[in-house]
């Protein structure tokens, strides 16, 4: 990852070229339910394999490394919530199983989401990821 950032740095035009790093800020996405009264019920978190946790840590370490080496500097960082809205708990389970390799919707959370939706037909199910976006600018060219 450090090599990838360093390659990208060389491609950037001076003086305004930049790298934008967009990825989850937290390892575990949350399954939540928006209720008709405006409140939000936490249903559960997804199960995350060690692979995803290690990749998350490695990405953070790569950014830290290029900053420490004074190759890039972080000039701005922002977090936002990124939502996916399934029609049902089954759709959420199938989506995660199809799209994601190292993250799973466990049976308990899946069942609970279904039960909560049936108990409150006006509720809306979603998956929320906290996402970070940061700008990295070249410090020096070599």
């Amino acid at each position: 990852m450090v090599d990838a950032l360093n390659r990208a740095r060389r491609w950037l035009k001076a003086p305004s070229g930049r790298i934008i790093d967009l990825r989850p800020a937290h390892v575990v996405p949350d399954v939540e339910l928006g209720l008709p009264d405006g409140s939000i019920a936490h249903v559960g978190g997804l199960l995350v394999d060690d692979e995803r946790r290690q990749r998350h840590l490695a990405a953070d370490l790569a950014v830290l490394t290029v900053v420490r080496r004074r190759l890039l500097s972080v000039t701005g960082e922002q977090e936002f919530s990124f939502y996916r809205y399934p029609d049902s708990a089954d759709e959420l389970r199938d989506y995660i199983a199809t799209k994601w390799q190292h993250t799973h919707l466990d049976a308990v959370t899946h069942r609970r989401a279904g039960e909560m939706m049936r108990a409150d037909p006006g509720a809306r199910l979603w998956l929320r990821e906290q996402v970070a976006i940061r700008t990295l600018l070249p410090e020096a060219r070599s």
Partner: peptide, 10 residues
């Protein structure tokens, strides 16, 4: 020096 932005998209 040919690119304005490199986006690492997730």
């Amino acid at each position: 020096e040919s690119v304005d932005a490199v986006l690492f998209s997730w």
